[in-house]
Design a protein around this nucleic acid. Structure first.
Length: 822
RNA sequence: GCGAGAGUGGUGGAAUUGGUAGACACGCCAGAUUUAGGAUCUGGUGCCUUCGGGUUUAAGGGUUCGAGUCCCUUCUCUCGCACCA
């Protein structure tokens, strides 16, 4: 056995201490001013059967260090943990084994809790929540009812993503486009479009607010960009085209109303209802064939990047409202039914896709915008039908041409004036379109919150709020009903109930459940008042803590959890539950921890590191310290066991220092300076979450202490306080051994003397023509004259200056002297 | 293609925002020591070198007394979106 420090014993000892003393319990104390309160939040885990992986402790350690640091700085810190415990894996396991998902889930939670506690995080465990707990989901259901009452939840038949393997529908946000076609974000199963009647949440009503709200958030630009992109707001116009052989009007959305004169044909999506109406007898066969073909097209073909444009002519013509031009109407699957109106005006001169299509089918291309580099828009030939005048589409802004009264005006002006013209002639309006769709909210699964509604005849009656929670019934089988309904549909005595409106009617419960995102949409609110039986949380307590000051988690939730939670939060703001309309002021994504081979950790690669093993072998403090030392928090970085051992060695060195006898004498000035420098740097770096450089500074300090024979009390005592947020167990133990009153976790952060934290002697570099030729020591803030004089007097420099003319001397105080010679 | 970000030793990464590039750590080399361990301590370690120095932050150019940092061009990589009209 080596002389390693007894981390096992001391880690257990201090975890027990913190738990029994409730060291990190926090309550709302109104005497603490607002600016001395902090809500530091982790993304809570889904308690999977696999247990914790090394990615979890990364973010959790970061917030823990930050929380402990703030506490020592006198902050009231709310730092809770809980479990996102509804979800498919437990239910899939139930399908296989018949074990109740609750059983599996609660076993996993117990395991997770033990694992998380083994890392010594300073959570207030009295605030733990689990989303599958009826006392919790009672309020998830309550929020759903508020959405329903405000018309934000509705049922509609729409084409939705259906996953046959999971037997449930999924939200748009849960579907990824892959080379193998669309697949589920969780589980990677294939999904397909099916028209089904589902519960939807009107998130689109909040699209603008979700977009604008991003402005003032301290979030990574990439996440903001992803949300903006997902919301996909575009501004333009809806334009109505009359059809020659039909009373129907074909409405299109365009962001380029200024190119209306260049519309030479129209395209409607094959699924568009108008297709049936307008297809001519001669074209009927071809159109029908095309519709069939695009329906049967595999998702692979549909999403293929380089695929050629295909389409069919309907035989009908539309009339361009601005110039009465007669233009053909085509169908093509490059126009999506799900965006805009499902139809477009095609402007092949100024849209690459339209251009490609026009080239394929020999349709006319007219230029209606000139590049501003063209001498004059008047030089552009007037294109007629059938005439091809542009080699490729020009999609930029410029000056209008071939556009009648709008010729010669710039794109922005033409857009504005054409919209005014369209509105005046009642054939179009200004319009804003979003890529964001309403949130498909219902799931045909068992292990989720039941939607608290009852169908009574044609009416839908909410379960009264005082009867919540509507708990999940026990079922015999977790298999979906096979009717497109959830397993709940088979539980007759649960499904059939009296109508809650007391009309005496027979009711049938909604059998769909909520998606996993529901519970995680508001868990950060429940932490604030986790046992409140009367409301989500006490308003004063909500106001005491909100908004979340720091939220740390993985980037994979960019447009799922983080968009949904913002949406719910804004609704809760509108109904007066919360007082801010954004939940998470500052967001940080921790980088991924990769396997030592630089790849994503996976069982199949065999590069998975299990935190339990690391804790058992090297201790929690070593794991915490290593994960923070690996590199910047936000960056992905590969695991290295020897790097981990290096951290363990460092702690071992710290321990051996602690075994020295404390000496009460005055330490050398150089060491004192080093201490104050260390406090200053660790303080600044910790505040900025630059943990790797903070640790590096502590190492430098320890290396210096090590060179002394004595352990000076006045150095050791503040150092242990600086160390405490990072490696709290060893710090507590050494603190106690040094004779101080535990816990160091609640000791005040040491202060530093600014005068001692900066060097009084500095190395001044002497350059000749920008190249470093010599250096010397000088007092801080020596005058330029002194620095120049000293630099010039150096023997080496004199050699350079001997036969040269000094043209210029640049002197940067405390840094360098640069002689520019000819 | 569009959007976001990144390229620094054998490796992970530092560099007060324009002022000594490579802190700290891993690895490696040498020495010391030992109750031989996944030990400890000390020193060295970008590259080239005729030991004077030269050269070096993806590549090339520019601004500047001075550039990893600012500007332009190109290349590579990661992440996200992807016919969104």
């Amino acid at each position: 056995m080596s002389k390693k420090y007894p981390f096992k014993t001391i880690e257990k000892k201090w975890q027990d201490y913190w738990e029994s003393h409730k060291t990190f319990r926090i309550t709302e104390d109104p005497s603490i001013p607002r600016e001395k309160r902090a809500y530091v939040l982790d993304m809570f885990p889904y308690p999977s059967a696999a247990g914790l992986h090394v990615g979890h402790p990364e973010g959790y350690t970061a917030t823990d260090i930050y929380s402990r640091f703030l506490r020592m700085q006198g902050f009231a810190v709310l730092h809770p943990m809980g479990f996102d415990s509804f979800g498919l894996p437990a239910e899939n396991y139930a399908l296989k084994t018949g074990t109740h998902p609750r059983t599996t889930t609660e076993e996993n939670i117990d395991r997770f809790r033990v694992q998380i506690k083994s890392l010594g995080f300073s959570y207030d465990w009295d605030r733990e929540v689990s989303t599958h707990d009826p006392d919790y989901y009672r309020w998830t259901q309550w929020i759903f009812l508020q959405l329903y009452k405000r018309g934000l939840a509705y049922m509609e038949e729409v084409p939705v993503w259906y996953c046959p393997d999971m037997g449930t529908v999924l939200a748009n946000e849960e579907v990824l486009t892959t080379p193998e076609g669309p697949r589920s974000e969780r589980g990677d199963y294939p999904v397909e479009r099916r028209p089904l009647r589902q519960w939807m949440l009107r998130i689109t009503e909040y699209a603008d607010r979700l977009l604008e709200g991003l402005e003032d958030l301290d979030w990574p630009e990439s996440i903001k960009a992803m949300q903006r992109n997902w919301i996909g707001r575009s501004v333009g116009a809806n334009v109505r085209f009359t059809l020659e052989d039909s009373s129907e009007v074909l409405e299109v959305f365009t962001t380029r109303p200024d190119t209306l004169f260049g519309a030479t044909y129209m395209v409607v999506s094959p699924e568009h209802p108008v297709v049936k109406e307008i297809t001519s007898a001669e074209q009927a066969d071809e159109v029908q064939r095309y519709i069939e073909r695009s329906r049967l097209k595999s998702d692979l073909e549909r999403t293929d990047l380089a695929k050629d444009k295909t389409g069919a002519f309907t035989g009908s013509y539309a009339v361009n409202p601005v110039n009465n031009a007669r233009i053909p109407v085509w169908i093509s699957d490059y126009v999506l039914m799900s965006y805009g109106t499902g139809a477009i005006m095609a402007v092949p001169g100024h849209d690459e896709r339209d251009h490609e299509f026009a080239e394929t089918f020999g349709l006319p291309i007219i230029q209606v915008v000139t590049d501003t580099s063209v001498e004059s828009w008047k030089d552009v030939p007037v294109g007629g039908q059938g005439e091809t005048i542009a080699k490729g589409a020009f999609s930029g802004d410029g000056v209008a041409c071939n556009s009648g009264q709008f010729d010669g005006k710039d794109t922005e002006t033409v857009k504005r004036e054409i919209i005014t013209w369209l509105e005046k002639h009642k054939c179009g309006t200004h319009s804003v379109n979003y890529k964001l769709r309403d949130w498909i909210f219902s799931r045909q699964r068992y292990w989720g919150e039941p939607i608290p509604l009852v169908h009574c005849g044609d009416d839908i009656i909410p379960v009264p709020e005082d009867q919540l929670p509507l708990t999940l019934p026990e079922v015999e089988s977790y298999k979906p009903a096979g009717t497109g309904e959830s397993p709940l549909a088979k539980v007759d005595d649960w499904v059939h109930c009296g109508c809650p409106d007391e009309s005496g009617r027979v009711g049938r419960r909604e059998t769909n459940t909520m998606p996993q995102w529901a519970g995680s949409c508001w868990y950060y609110l429940r932490y604030i008042d986790p046992t409140n039986e009367n409301e989500i949380a006490d308003k004063e307590k909500l106001d005491y803590w909100l908004p979340v000051d720091l939220y740390v988690g993985g980037a994979e939730h960019a447009v799922l959890h983080l968009l949904y939670a913002r949406f719910w939060h804004k609704v809760l703001f509108d109904i007066g539950v919360v007082s801010h309309d954004e939940p998470f002021q500052r967001l940080v994504n921790q980088g991924m921890i990769l396997g030592s081979d630089g790849n994503r950790m996976s069982k199949s690669r065999g590069n998975v590191v299990n935190p339990d093993d690391v804790v058992a072998e090297y201790g929690a403090d070593s794991l915490r310290l290593y994960e923070m030392f690996m590199g910047p928090l936000r960056q992905s970085k590969p695991w290295s066991t020897s790097g981990l051992m290096g951290m363990h060695r460092f702690l071992d060195r710290v321990w051996r220092l602690g075994e020295r006898e404390l000496f009460d004498g005055e330490p050398p000035l150089a060491l004192k300076r080093m201490l104050h420098k260390t406090i200053k740097k660790v303080e600044a770096d910790t505040r900025n979450l630059d943990f790797n450089t903070a640790i590096s500074q502590m190492m430098i300090f320890v290396n210096e202490l090590y060179k002394e024979d004595s352990l000076y009390r006045t150095l050791w005592e503040p150092f242990l306080r600086v160390l405490a947020p990072y490696t709290p167990h060893i710090a507590e133990e050494l603190w106690e051994r040094a004779g101080y009153e535990a816990p160091v976790s609640l000791a005040p952060w040491p202060s530093y003397d600014e005068a001692l934290a900066i060097d009084d002697q500095l190395t001044i570099v002497v350059q000749v023509n920008g190249k470093v030729r010599a250096e010397f020591e000088a007092d801080r803030d020596s005058s330029k004259e002194v620095l120049e004089e000293t630099a010039r007097s150096l023997e080496k420099i004199q050699g350079y200056l001997a036969d040269a003319e000094v043209k210029r001397i640049i002197t940067v105080p405390n840094r360098l002297v640069n002689f520019v010679i000819g």
